[in-house]
Structures are given as structure tokens and as C-alpha cells.
């Protein structure tokens, strides 16, 4: 699956119009362009280059970046922790906020609270991240001056608290790309579960509404939510592209943007492989999580 993704990416990026940024600039003469194409080995056929790349990749060598001459694996390893921190924080925010909001909406279905929260999530869903990001920076970085506006750490101080402060705004901005979806999934699946016979049975047994919700309803309602969250991981990683650009966050999203704009073929392919691996990993984690929530799925 990952090999398939790499082949698809390699061929597509090489077929895309344009070329590496070093040759696609206004002030490069035709003879310089020719020399550089030769230096980068781009005068050789794409299948040949792909097989060479693949042979290296299985040994852990993802090739050399055309933009910086550094190993692709090193460039990604440099950025991966930052992206995982950002995306992980955004995921936690979305789950911690999204599930309770969805449950509250389901319990208060059709009431004012439900409508208000629906409105907020609808706004959240429709606001573009780059705009929200700038607004967050203007309010918290410029006007209130309580949070740093960009970067992963200050030039002068590099403490845990400083890093945490830098993380808040981008994580909140990125969370909005999936939070509304988590809320909606939770709301609809909770509503569905609340209509089930066993909930009515539990309620008629005289259990308190709280026990019914947390012990009976929520547990069952979470099953589709967990699979939805797994499916949201790729969207979250996609959202890092814009979020990282706005907040100057040195992660893989920004690297991917630079790689795509600069037609850094090995880097684009390497990033795709890593992201594909993360997506596969996320779906495995979801499968494991299922068995924890739903005992029926547990292997005896």
C-alpha cells in the first residue's frame, strides 16, 4: 500500500508541469538549466529514477533533496516531531472538547443549547484556517500580548513553558479543521443510541440519567466516533500545511508545501510515504481502540 502510494506520487510529481525551483526561475540561462538538469539526474527516464529511489527506500534511504542536497530522511526527521506535537495537540483538543459538546447537544436535542452549539460548530467548519490563524495572532499576540504569534520557541528562551505557549494558537487553529466533525459525529451517534431499547430499559430500571449516559449510551455512541477520528487524521495532517505556514511552525506541512512548490521530487515522495505510513498506523490504532470500547470485537 505504501509502495503503491510512493509509485503514484513519484510518477505524478514528475509528470506535473514545471520543474525543480533551481531551474524554474526567471534569471537562469538555458545553458545553466541544462547543466543543472544533468547534475540532478533529471535527464534520465522516470521509471529508472523510481526504481533507483525504491531500491534506496527499502534500505531506509529516501534520496537527496533537490532543494538543499540534504538527505530526505534527515529533513523529514527534523520536522516530524514538530508536526506530531501540533497535530497531536489539535487531536486532543478536538476529542476533549468535541465529545462532551456532542453529548451535551444530543441530550439537549432541539433546545436552545443545541442550536447555539450547532451554530458555533457550523461557523467553525466554514472558517478558513489561514484567516482564523491571523485573527488569533492579532488578538492574542498583538492586542492582548499574552501569547507568542509565531514560531516554535523564542530565540532567547527555550523552555517547556515557552514551547507550550507557542503551541497554543496553532493547535487551536488546527483543531478547528476537525473539531466540528467530531462534535457532529458524537451528537448524531449519541442521539441514535439514546433511542435504543437498552437505554429505555436502563432508564426504566431506575438508573440515574448520568449513569445511563456515561455507562450505557456514551460507550456505544463512541464506536462510530472513534472510527471517524481515525479517518480525520489525514485531514488533520492536510490542515498542518496551512496552519504551519501561518504560524511559522517548522513542521512537515510547510516542508510539503515548499517541496511541492519547488518540485523537490524525492522530498515530495518521501513525505507522502511518511504520511501514508501515519495514516495506516492511525487506522491500526483505531482498530485496537474498537476492541477496547466494544468487548464484542475482542478476540477471545
Amino acid at each position: 500500500m505504501i509502495v503503491f502510494a510512493s509509485a503514484l506520487t513519484f510518477f505524478f510529481v514528475n509528470l506535473a508541469p514545471g520543474g525543480p525551483a533551481s531551474i524554474m526561475r526567471f534569471d537562469v540561462s538555458p545553458e545553466q538549466r541544462e547543466a543543472l538538469i544533468k547534475l540532478m539526474g533529471l535527464d534520465r527516464p522516470v521509471p529508472e529514477r523510481y526504481l533507483e529511489w525504491l531500491a534506496g527506500a527499502v534500505r531506509g534511504d529516501l534520496g537527496t533533496s533537490l532543494l538543499t542536497n540534504e538527505p530526505v530522511a534527515a529533513r523529514i526527521a527534523d520536522r516530524l516531531p514538530n508536526t506530531l506535537t501540533l497535530a497531536g495537540s489539535a487531536l486532543i483538543i478536538s476529542i476533549v472538547l468535541g465529545i462532551p459538546i456532542g453529548v451535551v447537544q444530543a441530550m439537549r436535542r432541539g433546545k436552545l443549547t443545541d442550536h447555539l452549539l450547532s451554530l458555533v460548530t457550523a461557523v467553525g467548519l466554514s472558517v478558513p484556517v489561514f484567516w482564523l490563524g491571523i485573527i488569533l495572532i492579532l488578538v492574542f499576540g498583538v492586542t492582548l500580548h499574552v501569547l507568542p504569534s509565531a514560531g516554535v520557541t523564542s530565540a532567547s528562551s527555550d523552555t517547556f513553558a515557552d514551547r507550550l505557549a507557542h503551541l497554543i494558537l496553532p493547535a487551536v487553529a488546527l483543531a478547528t479543521t476537525i473539531l466540528p466533525t467530531v462534535v457532529r459525529f458524537t451528537r448524531s451517534s449519541t442521539i441514535e443510541v439514546l433511542h435504543e431499547d437498552y437505554i429505555r430499559t436502563a432508564t426504566s430500571k431506575g438508573l440515574s440519567p448520568r449513569t445511563v449516559t456515561t455507562r450505557h449510551a456514551l460507550r456505544n455512541a463512541l464506536i462510530p466516533v472513534v472510527s471517524a477520528v481515525g479517518a480525520l487524521v489525514p485531514r488533520l495532517l492536510g490542515g498542518t500545511v496551512v496552519t504551519e505556514a501561518v504560524f511559522g511552525w517548522p513542521g512537515m506541512g510547510r516542508l510539503a508545501l515548499e517541496a511541492a512548490q519547488g518540485r523537490d521530487y524525492p522530498l515530495v515522495t518521501g513525505l507522502t510515504v511518511i504520511v501514508a505510513a501515519i495514516a495506516v498506523l492511525a487506522s491500526i490504532v483505531v482498530d485496537v481502540a474498537y476492541t477496547r470500547i466494544d468487548p464484542r470485537l475482542r478476540l477471545s
Partner: peptide, 20 residues
Amino acid sequence: VVFTVVPDPNTQIAQALAGD
């Protein structure tokens, strides 16, 4: 002299306004 990498031009403006 510190050169900070800030890709978004609007973020650069916000940072200038924040005195950074």
C-alpha cells in the same frame, strides 16, 4: 542579528505590530 523564518506575510506584519 536574528532572521526568523516566517512564511506568511500577514504573520510578519502581525509580528511587527507586536514589536517582535
